[in-house]
Amino acid sequence: MNQQTHYFFAIKIPEETKLMMKKNSEQLKELFPFNRWVHHQDLHITLAFLGNAPSEKLSIAVENVLEALRDTKGFFLEMNKLGTFGKVDSPRIFWVDTKASTELHGVRKKVFTACREAGFQLETRPFKPHITLARKWAGDQQFHIELLDSWNAVQPEPLRFKVNEVVLYQTHLDKTPKYEVKTSYHLE
């Protein structure tokens, strides 16, 4: 069966941070019974989801993003708190967000605009930067929002990382990890 592939631009999480998040996720799994946990190599912050992109449009987006990010400086982000998307009692997505960052929003705006100018129809909901950790609540009991406070127990020290790379990922649903870097943009 030939599965469609998807593309998206994202903040690449540094390797050391991915390894810390892998350790944290192992502890979180004991508290949060979700069906599918994201492989630590697939952790990222999505900037613009392109979907099944025609190669010509994708090439234009790649060039537009390169131009848009020219002279963009790297910056630091800090993990903030756990959260969910979906129903309160059985969430669809489990994530950790980052503290507010004007630099992150600036990079997202540059990438988003560059992709729209390449002809992509993009998500219109407000940008909520997050790193997806797991999907589909599988607990016997309803999800309790108070559990989200467990981040401080799992990660007592601030988890801070340097953002110095934006990447174009291609999704391979039949592989683990499932995201392949197609193009990388280094932030100075």
Rank of each mutant, 00 (worst) to 15 (best):
Y7Q: 07
T113H: 11
M1G: 15
A138K: 12
R116C: 14
L19D: 05
W137I: 03
G119I: 11
G106C: 05
H130F: 05
F32L: 10
Q141H: 07
E188M: 07
L82T: 09
W37A: 04
A100G: 07
K110Q: 14
K87N: 15
E103T: 01
K29H: 12
T176Y: 01
H105S: 12
K23G: 01
K87W: 06
K81C: 04
T72C: 15
P156Q: 09
T171G: 08
V107K: 02
T72A: 15
I60P: 01
H6A: 12
E180W: 02
V65I: 06
A68N: 13
V38M: 06
P54E: 12
Q121M: 07
E103S: 12
Q155C: 15
K18A: 04
Q4S: 11
D174Y: 09
R125D: 08
L82M: 13
D42N: 13
T171A: 09
I60D: 11
S25Y: 01
D42K: 02
I11P: 00
R36H: 14
K81S: 15
C115I: 02
M1P: 11
P33V: 07
Q27N: 06
L187E: 00
L31K: 11
A118N: 03
V166N: 00
D71Q: 15
G119W: 07
L187H: 00
I45V: 12
G83R: 13
V111Q: 00
L58C: 07
T5Y: 09
L66C: 14
H39A: 13
L28C: 04
V107L: 06
L19K: 04
W37N: 04
T124G: 10
I131D: 00
T132M: 06
A48C: 05
H105W: 12
G74M: 13
E56H: 14
Q4M: 09
R125Y: 09
H40R: 04
A61Y: 06
P129E: 03
L69A: 03
H40S: 12
K18Y: 03
V65N: 00
S184R: 07
E30D: 08
T72R: 10
L43Q: 12
H40F: 15
T72M: 13
T5I: 11
C115K: 02
D149I: 04
D174I: 03
H105I: 11
K128D: 05
N24K: 07
K110W: 03
L43G: 00
W137H: 10
T171M: 04
E15R: 01
D89C: 06
M79S: 14
W37Y: 13
I131Q: 00
G139R: 08
W95H: 14
P54C: 05
K110D: 02
Q170T: 02
D71H: 15
F161G: 01
S55N: 08
P129G: 05
Q4V: 05
M1Y: 08
N24I: 04
P14K: 02
L31H: 12
F34I: 06
F49Q: 04
E103A: 13
D42S: 05
F127I: 08
T102R: 09
N2E: 11
F32S: 04
K136G: 05
F127G: 04
Q141K: 13
L104A: 06
K18N: 04
I145T: 11
L50W: 05
E157T: 10
K57N: 14
F32P: 00
L133I: 14
K18W: 03
W151A: 11
T183Y: 10
E188R: 11
L77R: 02
